[in-house]
């Protein structure tokens, strides 16, 4: 599946394939596994997805971002399965004529992927316990540039 992968994401390879004659700016975001969360030592993560739906939704988000921000290209791949500390869990690459659009679109894509797409994080801690991630961790982040969609997403 193009946007959901159960093997390591090689983002330098993705980045190399991303050059475009119309692009003056290419932005790459890699979401990586931290060795701690909320004061607890983390050993690794495992991601689960409703893969066919997640793949389709990421594809739609990328298409929307391309037209909204006038991008030349946009890519996003999310891992499923076990990801070790410092491993790449998700990558977003955006390319546009100038840097503003590439940066803005990149943030737009990763925020929507985290908030809306059916992918779930299972955190494993050093004390042997584990927990499924709840909601996104945007609280306290510098997040006021766009509206939050947690309820709207339920399509009620």
């Amino acid at each position: 599946m193009k946007h959901i992968q159960n093997t390591a994401i090689n983002y330098s390879e993705l980045f190399d394939d991303f050059r475009h004659p119309h692009s003056g700016a290419v932005v790459l975001f890699s979401g990586e596994v931290r060795d701690n969360n909320k004061g607890r030592a983390v050993t690794h993560l495992e991601y689960e997805a409703y893969a066919p739906m997640a793949n389709k939704m990421i594809s739609e988000i990328l298409e929307e971002a391309k037209s909204r921000f006038n991008l030349n290209q946009a890519a996003c791949v999310h891992r499923v399965g076990r990801v070790e500390i410092s491993g790449c869990a998700v990558v977003v690459i955006t390319g546009s004529g100038h840097r503003k659009e590439a940066y803005d679109a990149n943030r737009y894509i990763i925020d929507r992927v985290k908030n809306e797409v059916p992918i779930w994080k299972h955190e494993f801690f050093a004390d042997g316990t584990s927990e499924w991630g709840q909601n996104c961790d945007c609280v306290g982040d510098d997040h006021h540039h766009h509206q939050h969609h947690h309820h709207y997403e339920r399509a009620e």
Partner: peptide, 10 residues
């Protein structure tokens, strides 16, 4: 039917 809990990817 697929029951989808809140997303926590990324």
């Amino acid at each position: 039917l697929f029951l989808i809990p809140p997303s926590s990817g990324g």
